[in-house]
Amino acid sequence: MAEGDHPNEQAHPSAETYLRVAAALVVLTVLEVGVFYVPAFHAVLVPTLLVLSALKFSLVVLFYMHLKMDSPFFSFLFGAPLLLATGVLVALLLLFFGTLTLRGAAGGG
């Protein structure tokens, strides 16, 4: 069996699919930069940018890194640390925001 012939994996996408994903990535990047410059979006800037970034991240991981068609075990190897890392990031942000709030309350009291 040559390299790349694995019984638990489906065939990779066609060049046409790769081009469509690239087009979507370019459109999403243009939207991100556009949202950044349009004042009307500033109220929802952070959630909008995070959603657009997550979409780009998912497209690359699913199609270019082939997680959509590869073995679910690879998704686990990538997803578990990513979940852990995201949890640590959120916990740290909450911890620091919490500390700031407590300091503010103590100072105000």
């Binding site: 390299e3 694995h6 638990n8 075990f73 690879f74 990538f78 640390p81 852990l84 890392a85």
Partner: peptide, 18 residues
């Protein structure tokens, strides 16, 4: 049924996430 090098590399990418 998976290539060990690919498993190792995905584990490495997982560590890079951290």
């Amino acid at each position: 049924g998976l290539d060990s090098r690919k498993i190792a590399f995905w584990a490495f990418i997982g560590s890079e996430c951290l």
